[in-house]
Design a protein around this nucleic acid. Structure first.
Lengths: 254, 254
DNA sequence: CGCTCTGTCCCAGATGTTTGAACAACTGTT
DNA sequence: AACAGTTGTTCAAACATCTGGGACAGAGCG
């Protein structure tokens, strides 16, 4: 699965290294970037000026920054996902009715990408924004997705990305993961009990197409003090499942 | 302004040509892309496999598609714009209160990029999504922005992109543009009377920072049959201006 | 089964990329 | 006002890399 290109175009790799660095540094000058990447500054300058010419990067008085043209590509990529178009209004409703933060996640390259995030009136402030990529096994959303993949696919993903945990409660070996996924299949929903972010709980449900293939997952997340007891174990799971079912119906007839 | 790189990295250019083609074709195979770009398919294959390895492109049973990693970069680029963070809730409110489509636009590389778009309950369906780039002189939003730029900057933009109109009512020479911009400055708001899209009208207001520099514009747009008479000339302009003023206040104190 | 599509691989030649060094343009300090 | 220490930018030679034709395997189809 983790294919490595036989004949990679190194300049293309470098191009994205430059862009990634620009993102990590939150904008930077030529010299700073060159030091960060350990590449001669004339080389960095060549890339930056090319990227600027192509309008993928913008130079704001001496500081190069990631340009909005990526928003064009990104919005397009999201628009192309059937799930987004169909699930968005339902997830908006989910956020409104629960007052919490509601999410849509899909798998790509073995990781989870947040497609959308709707805020209810009491929604927690989470730093991660749309587009953020997370390891699948560390979130309820990801577990909901993994639970409905073939064993081979799960194996491939674990082989590629490992099971490195971000917090204490995390899953750390394959047996634990399998147990967790069995739980998810049995209950129909996945839980996240402060596994990725402290104080944050989450309830997620998978979204399957008419061929029972997993196409993504939706969730609500919120603070532990509001996510407890019956609300956490009964009320919210039921709600999330109901919304997931509506989405599945709409996916089938479209 | 239209700087051309002295020592451009051609492979970087090609990389984005490939991505652009992938977008235009809405996903494609190696051969199809090669024909479209008039490049040998082995070369295209090198780029695609590199892009896939870097996770910027995804291969769904034989068809390469633009990947969600661009959503990561795009969402980041948008998040970096102060205007987006501040204006979003206000524009949401604008959409809700008017029931129409409300927008945020900023200038980049002499063109307009839609940062955000909020839908009221009666909002028209417009194909353009977030990230779409438009010539500034063809929209109310763009005119609101141009009206508050220095003459030199306007000249530079016109030199670079011309005044090619997309529809009949469009501005087609520099004198007409200057007249239109003077109008905008006088009234405080800009109008679009089916200039870009038939049957669609638009009211836009500029957003300035504390130094009176233009940082973007907001608008409401809707069908001609709802945008007429007092509502089009008085009510909506006042509303949009009010929201723009609130945003300006928040921009200043942040 | 054979035909025609794919996508993938390989390697030599041509081309583009890399690189340090030199330069110009700023910034802030003395 | 001159200076030292920045920065971004340019250039051309050396060489690493990309290009591109051709060959190959596999899928799909009649």
């Amino acid at each position: 699965m983790a294919k490595t290109a036989q004949n990679p175009v190194k300049s293309a790799e470098t191009t994205f290294e430059v862009l990634d660095a620009l993102k990590d540094l939150d904008g930077a000058g030529v010299t700073e970037l060159a030091q960060h990447l350990d590449i001669p500054k004339s080389t960095v300058h060549n890339y930056l000026s090319t990227l600027e010419q192509e309008e993928y990067v913008v130079n704001r008085d001496g500081v190069y920054e990631v340009g909005l043209r990526f928003l064009e590509l990104g919005a397009y990529a999201r628009h192309r996902e059937k799930l987004f178009e169909i699930a968005k209004p339902e997830v908006d409703r989910l956020a409104e009715e629960t007052g919490e933060l509601a999410n849509i996640l899909v798998e790509e390259h073995g990781r989870g990408s947040y497609l959308y995030r709707a805020r209810g009136d009491k929604a927690v402030q989470v730093k991660a924004h749309v587009g953020t990529r997370v390891p699948l096994h560390t979130t309820a959303l990801g577990k909901a997705i993994l639970a409905h993949m073939s064993t081979e696919r799960v194996d491939a993903i674990v082989d590629r990305h490992g099971l490195g945990g971000e917090a204490s409660n995390s899953i750390s070996n394959r047996a634990e993961l399998e147990q967790a996924l069995a739980d998810v299949r049995e209950r129909g929903v996945a839980f996240d009990d402060e596994e990725r972010l402290e104080g944050l709980r989450c309830v997620a449900a998978p979204v399957l197409n008419h061929d029972d293939e997993i196409i993504g997952a939706i969730s609500v997340s919120g603070p532990t003090n509001r996510f407890r007891g019956d609300r956490f174990r009964e009320e919210l799971p039921q709600k999330v499942l109901e919304v997931a079912n509506v989405i599945e119906l709409n996916v089938t007839y479209s």
